[in-house]
């Protein structure tokens, strides 16, 4: 299956979870939040949430600004 993460398409195993996907990309670290198809996926649900084919994810963290 394929998912778009922060604007770039990536291929993943079918039934990949949010946690596995973020781990694959090196994003599973403190201070990171994820939204899938426009809705926040709380960290406590990363391991139990499956990413559907064609999903669009945004993975964000705090940076200097404002």
């Amino acid at each position: 299956m394929r998912a778009r993460v922060n604007g770039t398409d990536h291929d993943f195993a079918d039934d990949v979870t949010v946690r596995e996907l973020l781990d694959d990309l090196g994003y599973d670290r403190p201070g990171v939040a994820a939204a899938m198809n426009g809705t926040v996926v709380p960290r406590v649900r990363w391991a139990s949430t499956t990413v559907p084919d064609g999903a669009v994810l945004e993975v964000l963290t705090a940076v200097q600004g404002g």
Partner: peptide, 11 residues
């Protein structure tokens, strides 16, 4: 204040 941006973004 801090901003919220993509993890792979510059900054």
């Amino acid at each position: 204040t801090v901003s919220i941006r993509r993890v792979d973004a510059a900054g």
